[in-house]
């Protein structure tokens, strides 16, 4: 019968592509290919469109599914962007970390001055502020209003202080630096005024773990919800699948509409989630602005941003597609014509 094409495939009688018009050979082959890939592309566009149309024919059921998916995406999406904001705030403050060196009280003013000058030569220190014992006392008197009392003191009880701004920013480096300063003979005590920052970072480390775990769990939820939705869709289109297989549909052909359905669910859910996340940040903008003003600072909240949005859409679409793929893998094989 037919000419054998591949190893075992039987060729359908009519060629599903345009009849050759020109001379045979390379050119004909080229037309063949083009016709075929055109059909293939059109088929994909058709299936993609009709998958969307099918979603829209059951608007309530689809909307419910999409709402569940969107919630499952909004939560981790919002938390991830919140983490990002907190990280930005934390690193902004980290640059202002200071180390205060309380010098030995026995150190003379001249020695203290010399020590300060030495420090200025070090390149791991960005800036230095010397507060001599005298200055310290004056400052204290001004702030505290105890000038009368202080006047009665014969001796200045305050040590000289060197406040320095290190170039290091990481908590670990700063800790090492602080210890090395404290080991210097001139220094009585070195204080890193960032303990609260360390705590904040520890908390944020924990929070980010928690958000990741939540993200994975809710991602799994998206996968399962779409998987189940597609399973139901497969069940309801059982006849169509059977008949298609009877008239020569490949597994890929049967699978395709369901994969596109998963894709649409993922895409639409991501869109809804994106809008809710951005809306939530818009609502938070004013209160955060006010809070920042209280701290005499200005902070511009960031929403998802370009990367965050991209991540949201890519993850959601991939999850939708994979969820559909799983359902299709599990259930399509079972449906065979009898």
């Amino acid at each position: 019968m037919d000419k054998k094409r591949g190893a075992v495939r039987v060729q359908p009688t009519p060629k599903p592509v345009a009849e050759p018009k020109g001379p045979r050979g390379a050119e004909h082959h080229h037309i063949d290919r083009k016709g075929h890939s055109d059909n293939w592309r059109r088929h994909h566009v058709d299936v993609c469109k009709s998958a969307l149309r099918k979603l829209l024919t059951t608007p309530v059921a689809s909307a419910m599914t999409i709402a569940v998916l969107a919630i499952a995406l909004t939560l981790p999406g919002f938390l991830f962007s919140a983490l990002d904001n907190m990280r930005t705030i934390a690193t902004g403050w980290e640059g202002e970390t200071r180390i205060s060196l309380y010098l030995q009280p026995s150190l003379s003013d001249a020695d203290a001055d010399r020590f300060g000058r030495q420090l200025m030569l070090r390149d791991d220190i960005a800036a230095i502020d010397m507060i001599s014992r005298e200055q310290g006392l004056r400052e204290f008197a001004r702030i505290s209003g105890f000038s009368d009392v202080l006047d009665t003191l014969s001796d200045n009880p305050l040590p000289a202080v060197v406040v320095l701004m290190p170039t290091a920013t990481s908590t670990k480096d700063l800790g090492l630096l602080r210890a090395s300063f404290e080991a210097l003979p001139e220094v009585d005590e070195a204080v890193l005024d960032m303990e609260w920052l360390q705590r904040l970072q520890a908390i944020m480390g924990l929070a980010s773990r928690a958000v990741y775990v939540l993200g994975v769990l809710l991602g799994l939820t998206v996968l399962l919800v779409i998987g189940n939705t597609i399973r139901v869709a497969i069940e309801s289109r059982r006849d169509e699948i059977v008949v298609s297989k009877l008239v020569g549909a490949t597994d890929a052909w049967v699978r395709r509409p369901f994969l596109y359905t998963g894709f649409w669910y993922g895409l639409i859910a991501a869109l809804v989630a994106w809008v809710s996340i951005q809306a939530a940040w818009l609502m938070l903008e004013q209160p955060v602005e006010q809070l920042a003003q209280l701290y005499r600072s200005h902070y511009q909240l960031q929403g998802l941003g370009l990367m965050g949005s991209l991540w949201l859409f890519i993850c959601s679409v991939l999850l939708g597609w994979a969820g559909a793929g799983l359902a299709v893998h599990r259930h399509l094989r079972d449906i065979e014509p009898q």
Binding site: M1, D2, V8, V10, P12, L246, V247, G248, T250, D251
Partner: peptide
């Protein structure tokens, strides 16, 4: 069927066999 030994056809080949046959059920 034609030049095909059906025993030699795998699951993936079945659709192409069916396209070469018209069936009234």
């Amino acid at each position: 069927v034609g030049e095909q030994q059906l025993n030699a056809l795998g699951r993936r080949d079945i659709p192409y066999l069916r396209r070469s046959i018209g069936v009234v059920f």
